[in-house]
């Protein structure tokens, strides 16, 4: 992800040598994902995700817009991932055409939007004329590797957390009820894709990698910034709890044996399961926290059915 920052030769050699001896700078094992810390802001759909020093904020907003002519029954959904110098000096302001930025944006786009994680048909208000336009703004606050993985968790958690104002439709007239008047409604989330990024290192020379049979390439999960700078190749696997591969992106880089790539996919699945659980858990806890008094205020009678 970084062009301008360089790592000193001695440090680079140290990291690579450590990897050959099964060690990482932060003491993690090769297939250990960093702990993910998810916190919510004041409003619905404001989520900050921290993984080590990496920090990403996602903010969901919505407004009423006109649907595309060729898709009258679907709402609009846009994910904007723009980087700024805040995350590190390697990011330029307003320049999102860098290789890594494009790849990152495309992978999140494919993982979340293309895979239909958000039910866009549920965003339709009046077919052909009015629909909700949901926008996810991903802000990269601090970069220590793993932007794709962190952003994906942030976007999905924020989508699950977000609530849009309730509406009622009478003919062609649409009334938007303010949040204090009517309970806002959640978005329809069809599945939760989770991205897991692997970084590959080649401990031997290139010929052994291409011609040899030893398959001794090193694969580590969730690289930090320094590891990302030194890696020879990368693979991002996106899975969901239903054992579906949502997206895989190994855009070149170190050639890797097909079987070891499959193995990586299976490793990613266990992480996916765990993260999905964690996301649903924090959402539930936050929901309970926000609706502490809901049962007190409820005028519902305990009825027998």
């Amino acid at each position: 992800m970084a062009k301008d920052i360089e790592i000193s030769t001695s440090e680079a050699q140290f990291i690579l040598e450590a990897l050959k001896q099964n060690g990482r700078l932060d003491g993690r094992s090769f297939d250990q994902f960093r702990d993910v810390e998810i916190s919510f802001g004041r409003e619905y759909g404001d989520v900050t995700v921290k993984m080590g020093n990496t920090k990403v904020q996602c903010r969901i907003s919505c407004q009423i817009a006109q649907p595309y002519e060729d898709r009258p029954f679907e709402g609009l959904f846009l994910i904007s991932t723009e980087s700024s110098p805040m995350a590190g000096p390697q990011f330029e302001n307003g320049n999102n055409t860098g290789e890594d930025e494009v790849l990152c944006a495309r992978i999140i786009e494919k993982a979340v939007r293309r895979s239909g994680a958000l039910d866009v048909e549920g965003l339709c208000i009046v077919a052909g004329s009015k629909c909700w336009a949901v926008r996810a703004d991903v802000h990269f606050l601090d970069c220590d590797g793993g932007f794709i993985d962190a952003s994906c968790v942030a976007v999905m958690t924020a989508l699950l957390h977000f609530k849009k104002p309730d509406i009622s439709v009478l003919g062609d007239r649409v009334t938007v009820h303010p949040v204090d008047e009517r309970e806002p409604v959640s978005l329809g989330i069809l599945h939760i894709p989770i991205c897991v990024t692997f970084s590959f290192f080649n401990p031997q020379d290139t010929e052994e990698n291409i011609k040899g049979d030893s398959n001794s390439e090193i694969a580590i999960i969730d690289a930090t910034l320094k590891e990302e700078l030194l890696r020879d190749g990368t693979l991002t696997v996106t899975l969901n709890k239903n054992r579906e591969v949502v997206q895989v992106s190994k855009a070149g880089g170190l050639p890797m044996d097909a079987l070891s790539l499959m193995e990586n996919c299976h490793k990613a699945y266990t992480i996916t399961e765990r993260l999905t659980e964690q996301i649903l858990d924090v959402i539930k806890k936050d929901d309970a926290e926000r609706n502490k008094y809901a049962t007190l205020l409820s005028s519902e009678n305990a009825r027998e059915t």
């Binding site: 579906e244 591969v245 949502v246 895989v248 992106s249 890797m256 044996d257």
Partner: peptide, 10 residues
């Protein structure tokens, strides 16, 4: 050995 692997749909 796969140099490139892209999956775009489920």
């Amino acid at each position: 050995k796969l140099s490139l692997l892209l999956v775009e749909d489920k």
